[in-house]
Design a protein around this nucleic acid. Structure first.
Lengths: 261, 261
DNA sequence: ACACGTTGGAAGGTCAGACCAGTGACAAAA
DNA sequence: TTTTGTCACTGGTCTGACCTTCCAACGTGT
């Protein structure tokens, strides 16, 4: 009556064991970002495997964004700081294959960013508020220069993400934003009315900033949702628009300060 | 004074070009899940590169969850259906390194799952409602059997994710849930009071189900948030608890139906 | 005619050894 | 001191080989 459950005796691939050991060393902090792995030939000796095996392992780690290697550098492959790069690629891949899901992607971003804004309103520091304030000011001053404007816009949103104090939310949000940008660039390239769009965008970011600064979480969340929905409305399908009502914080909370039409 | 700008003549790695071509074929649908790539030796001929190069490319695609290869099979590497596996790994990796972020992970799940419940309340189909209903009933009938109970619990949540009608939300949510489970297993293994916990869990899922069935999005979102916060309260840090108030739908919307204490 | 064991070839996994094109530190030359 | 050239070593790629595993076709025996 003993409940022994034998586990399948799956063969363990050699390169996988190399991956595991190196990954463990990186994730556990034994190898910190900026440090370097031994050279491939040295790893061959240490793991007692052949160079192709080591290289396959390094390729896998590379594709996971954990290391980077360049030919000629004498210090060996470098351990990278952990980034959302792999996460972003996963989002893009999923978005591309899941049929017609730019709408889903936008909806997802609304969920993430409005939550981040709620959190930011509640948890922000003075310093982060400074950063946001300066970024919004730079946006308003740069409606004539799309390049400067976009940079300030990115800075503002980055500050909001950071103020949410949730690294996972921050990384996922930025990854999904990048994924949206990437897919949009594949379909449409220019905005019809740059100047007007920038002014609208700056105004909505200003309103969002003030809600965050005031610590008004529901208003901040509502503003973020409205801003994203306006900005990407051409990409939302019927279901996406219907979903907005379900996501609205409460029956009428989006109306206590009308955003610019 | 001409403005010629030479672009950097970066070397393009051979295996990367192989990856790009195969990935493009898969993502564009030319190669569908279940189909097979040519064998490694055949790819060597088609790409005019050596076998190690082909193998490195295949390893990368494999680590991205796009293909799978087994020795001996005569049909070549198989194209896999796209899954959130890579996404889940990304979440787990991020969660593991971002210091002490089980709290962040739980917070993130609250954001995703409460949004999914809001959407599910608004967009569910009759069939999905059936599935949820049956799953909740099975949970209530299985408080004596942890195994059966957990399976029904998973079924219920899977149905909710599916009813959100957002594949990205669904995949991310399930990925983050799996990541939480994985990390919890590393830290603590048994619940102190299985029976009581199961009854509580069943009751809160029942309440959640009724809110969804009634199409009450705010209530569904609030129930989900409360349920997850209760279930993982031991993993939430101070900031996480404070954040709950910011995420609460509105000043008092969580109180119009008191969840079980 | 059917079922069953055998077997050969093809697949992926691994290895050893080699060459090339970069890199970077150091020494020689201006 | 600054520039230039050298050279050892790196990663990128290739060749060719061997092993184990798998599967399909074959040839048995019933």
């Amino acid at each position: 009556m003993s409940k022994i459950n034998f586990t399948p005796a799956v063969p363990v691939l050699t390169y996988e064991r190399v991956v595991e050991q190196i990954e463990e060393a990186i994730l556990s902090g034994t190898l910190e970002p900026g440090q370097h792995l031994p050279s491939e030939r040295e790893l061959v000796v240490q793991f007692s495997v052949s160079r192709p095996t080591v290289r396959e392992a390094l390729r896998v780690l590379q594709s996971r964004g954990l290391i980077a290697s360049r030919p000629g550098v004498r210090t060996g492959p470098e351990v990278l700081p952990l980034s959302g790069h792999a996460l972003e690629r996963s989002f893009s891949t999923l978005a591309r294959v899941a049929a017609l899901s730019l709408s889903d992607l936008v909806q997802f971003r609304i969920v993430l960013e409005s939550s981040a804004c709620r959190l930011a309103a509640s948890l922000h520091t003075e310093e982060q508020l400074e950063t946001m304030s300066s970024a919004v000011a730079r946006m308003e001053a740069a409606v004539h220069d799309a390049d400067l404007f976009n940079r300030a816009d990115l800075d503002f949103h980055a500050a909001v993400w950071e103020a949410s104090r949730n690294l996972l939310l921050q990384t996922s949000g930025q990854a999904v934003s990048s994924a949206i940008l990437g897919l949009m660039n594949d379909r449409i390239s220019v905005a019809p009315d740059p100047r007007g769009a920038m002014e609208e965008s700056a105004a909505s970011d200003r309103a969002l900033f003030e809600a965050i600064a005031a610590g008004n979480s529901p208003a901040a969340g509502a503003h973020a949702q409205q801003a994203i929905a306006d900005h990407f409305k051409q990409y939302l399908d019927d279901r996406g628009r219907k979903a907005l009502h379900a996501l609205a914080t409460n029956e009428d909370s989006t109306e206590h300060s009308a955003p610019p039409a």
